[in-house]
């Protein structure tokens, strides 16, 4: 099953049990339904599906207005960079609303444009940049396991959050592991494997790269722990720090283009708290090349990593 199909099924199932609710966004029940993300959403008893005008700032405000009325909503957004037009609400309106701990739910589900071919619009693929501006809870979906947990737990739940999905992964087969991961901090951190030699931690939407790296290291006789950090800044790094203290080797992967990457919070903590032999931080080079339409492959050279680890 494709990544987008799996998430679409989860959304429809979760929303079936949530009334009253408003589902809205541009073309969410027209055309491709955001490339299949919102396919099959239908009006129902106290459930309203709205194809809205092109009013991104207002769309964000509407969700908070619904929240203040005690009505839950999900705002689906074709491109995360459109959310730039709603930043006033993400900060100022949310800061008003959060004071009263609302019982209704408001979730924005943007497609993070990280395939690269949109050029300038792809330059903003760092999900956590949006979350950090007002300490917004944010969850990135990268595979079957985190999708199941995040959508079922957070899509309709009191409060506000952003759940990001990756355009790059939309038409790929959804990744899945043999065993269910251990979920820490209510979906902030997922641990997929425990290994003896290396700790791999993936940020933003880099779980596929982390999974591949773990498999390639295994063929070279190295067993790795594999974590994915699906939120902006977990409050509690404890479980990762424990693992790093044991393996003494940390590989951090972050595919975002921000200069304020979440992975730096972890490496700072590791240097402060752990006795460690080696830390490798694998990130993109943020240059003007990012502004041009291109494939934006974020590939990892396992041989080069092995060479560094042996030094």
């Amino acid at each position: 099953m494709k990544y987008v199909q799996h998430i679409n099924e989860l959304i429809r199932t979760t929303i079936d049990n949530s009334n009253p609710i408003v589902l809205y966004g541009q073309n969410i029940s027209a055309g491709s339904c955001i490339s299949g993300l919102t396919r099959g959403l239908k009006n129902g008893e106290k459930r309203l599906v709205i194809n809205t005008p092109n009013i991104e700032s207002t769309q964000v405000g509407i969700g908070f207005g619904l929240m203040l009325s005690g009505v839950s909503s999900v705002f689906f957004m074709k491109q995360q960079d459109f959310l730039l037009l709603g930043i006033d609400h993400l900060v100022n309106t949310y800061n008003f609303v959060r004071i009263n701990e609302p019982s209704a739910s408001f979730t924005i589900v943007p497609v993070v444009v990280d395939s690269g071919y949109e050029g300038i619009q792809s330059s903003l693929n760092n999900f956590s940049d949006f979350c950090s501006i007002a300490r917004i809870a944010g969850y990135a979906i990268t595979n079957r396991h985190d999708a199941d947990h995040i959508v079922r737990t957070h899509l309709v739940s009191p409060g506000f959050r952003i759940i990001g999905v990756s355009q790059r992964l939309f038409q790929t087969e959804i990744l899945s592991c043999e065993n269910d991961p251990t979920v820490y901090n209510n979906g902030e951190i997922f641990q997929y494997y425990e290994g003896a030699d290396i700790t791999i931690v993936c940020f933003n939407f880099s779980f596929p790269q982390g999974m591949k790296l773990r498999e390639e290291l295994a063929t070279l006789g190295l067993s790795s722990s594999l974590f994915s950090v699906n939120v902006m800044t977990p409050i509690d790094w404890l479980h990762i720090l424990r693992d790093v203290s044991r393996t003494k080797k940390l590989i951090v992967i972050d595919d975002s283009k921000s200069v304020n990457r979440s992975c730096y919070h972890l490496t700072t903590e590791v240097y402060r708290e752990c006795s460690i032999d080696r830390v490798l931080t694998l990130t993109r080079d943020v240059t003007d090349e990012c502004l041009r339409p291109c494939s934006e492959e974020f590939s990892i050279d396992t041989n080069s990593i092995m060479k560094t680890l042996r030094q």
């Binding site: 964000v60 969700g63 207005g65 009505v71 309106t93």
Partner: peptide, 19 residues
Amino acid sequence: ILGNNLSVAAGMALGKKVK
């Protein structure tokens, strides 16, 4: 914030309609 409250009011009006 100038203009900010129009959309929040619109959301509230929509909430009234749904409920």
